[in-house]
C-alpha cells in the first residue's frame, strides 16, 4: 500500500527528511538520502575507516547501523505525517543477520506501517545490493508530538 502512495504531505516529508538527514550526528556518519519508493525512503552510509568496529575485519560498527536504522525509520514516519510535528524514538530493536562487507556502502529502507494517534510503528532493512539479501533488520516505535518545540525552528505556526 505504502509503495503506491506518495508522502501524506510532501512539504512535511521533504522538510523533516532534510532535518533528520542533516542532524549533526548523521552528518558525522556521512548519511545521505538516496530516494523513496512511495512512502518508503532509502538512506545510505558509505564505508569509512573511522566507522569500523573491528579493525581486524574492517566491518562497520553495529552502532552505525543502529543510527542508520533509527534515522531512516524516523524519515519513514515523516512520509506519513499530515502536519509538522516532533517525533522521538521510543524503542528500537536490531537483528544483525550477517556481517556487512568491508568497503561497501550500506543502504537502509524503512516503512512506517502504522501511524497511530500517539505512536508510529516502523520496520527497516539494511542491505548492500538488495533488500532481499539483508544485513540487518530493525523495528522501532516513535512517540508522536514528543516535544512542543518544532524540529525546524523557523517553521513558525505550521
Amino acid at each position: 500500500m505504502s509503495l503506491s502512495q506518495s508522502p501524506a504531505n510532501p512539504a512535511v516529508f521533504e522538510a523533516l527528511r532534510d532535518v533528520f538527514v542533516g542532524l549533526p550526528h548523521c552528518v558525522t556518519l556521512g548519511f545521505e538520502y538516496v530516494g523513496s519508493e512511495g512512502r518508503l525512503p532509502t538512506l545510505k552510509v558509505d564505508w569509512r575507516d573511522d566507522l569500523v568496529g573491528n579493525p581486524s575485519t574492517g566491518v562497520i560498527h553495529g552502532g552505525v547501523i543502529t543510527s542508520l536504522v533509527d534515522t531512516t525509520s524516523a524519515v519513514s514516519v515523516t512520509a506519513c505525517l499530515p502536519q509538522f510535528e516532533t517525533i522521538a524514538t521510543l524503542d528500537l530493536r536490531i537483528d544483525y543477520l550477517k556481517a556487512a562487507s568491508p568497503g561497501r556502502t550500506i543502504f537502509c529502507r524503512a516503512e512506517c506501517y502504522r501511524l497511530a494517534g500517539q505512536v508510529a510503528f516502523t520496520r527497516a532493512v539494511c542491505f548492500h545490493d538488495s533488500p532481499d539479501d539483508p544485513i540487518a533488520h530493525g523495528v522501532a516505535t516513535f512517540m508522536r508530538e514528543s516535544s512542543p518545540l518544532p524540529m525546524i525552528p523557523q517553521e513558525g505556526g505550521q
Partner: peptide
C-alpha cells in the same frame, strides 16, 4: 553527536551505538 538541535538532545542512534 547531536540528534535534535532545538532541544538540544543526543542522537538516539548514537545512544544505541
Amino acid at each position: 553527536n547531536v540528534g535534535n538541535t532545538v532541544l538540544p538532545a543526543l542522537h538516539g542512534g548514537l545512544i544505541g551505538g
